[in-house]
C-alpha cells in the first residue's frame, strides 16, 4: 500500500506522519491524532459536522484526503480555546443556548470562526448563508445564529 510522508500543522503544532493515499483527513485527525472533537456525521459531504479550517478556510474533512493537506495548516475545534479560556464563539454557543445534542457544534464553530475572520459584523442573512452547509437537526438555527452574533459583538 502506498504511503506518503506528510507534514501538516494542526492547531499550531507541526505534525509529521506517513499516511495511506486513501486516508481521509477526518480519519487522520480523529483516529491517529485522537482529536475527536471533529465529528463524522453523514460522511457524504452534506452535513458539515466534520468541518475544519484548511489554511483558514472551512472545508468538509470527510471529503479531503489527509495527503491533500500536506504542507498546510489545519485548525480543529480543539484549536479554539486558549489556556482554558473559551473562544468567544464557544462562549456564545453556551450563553445563547446554541446547542442541544452538540453533534453539529464543532462544524458550526469552525464555519463561524472563518466567517468572523472575513466579516466582523455579519448580518443574519450572511450568517445563515455561511452556515448553509452545516446541518443542525435539533436546536434549530435561531439560537445558532444568535450565538454567532454574540461572538461577533464580543470580538468587535
Amino acid at each position: 500500500m502506498a504511503t506518503h510522508d506528510v507534514r501538516i500543522t494542526v492547531n499550531g503544532e507541526p505534525q509529521a506522519a506517513a499516511v495511506e493515499s486513501r486516508l481521509l483527513l477526518v480519519h487522520w485527525l480523529r483516529e491517529v491524532l485522537r482529536l475527536t472533537g471533529t465529528h463524522i456525521g453523514c460522511d457524504t459531504t452534506h452535513c458539515g459536522a466534520c468541518t475544519v479550517l484548511l489554511d483558514g478556510e472551512p472545508v468538509k474533512s470527510c471529503t479531503v484526503l489527509a495527503v491533500q493537506a500536506d504542507g498546510r495548516e489545519v485548525t480543529t475545534v480543539e484549536g479554539l480555546e486558549h489556556d482554558g479560556t473559551l473562544h468567544p464563539l464557544q462562549e456564545g454557543f453556551q450563553q445563547e443556548h446554541g446547542l442541544q445534542c452538540g453533534f453539529c457544534t464543532p462544524g458550526m464553530l469552525m464555519t463561524g470562526r472563518a466567517l468572523l475572520e472575513r466579516n466582523a459584523d455579519p448580518s443574519e442573512a450572511e450568517i445563515r448563508q455561511a452556515i448553509s452547509g452545516n446541518l443542525c437537526r435539533c436546536t434549530g438555527y435561531v439560537n445558532i445564529v444568535k450565538s454567532i452574533e454574540y461572538a461577533a459583538a464580543k470580538l468587535r
Binding site: T45, G48, T51, L54, E57, P58, V59, K60, T63, V64, T111, Q129, A130, S132, G133, N134
Partner: peptide
C-alpha cells in the same frame, strides 16, 4: 453550487 464549504474546494 452545493454549499459554501464545498465551494472552498
Amino acid at each position: 453550487i452545493a454549499d459554501p464549504l464545498v465551494r472552498n474546494r
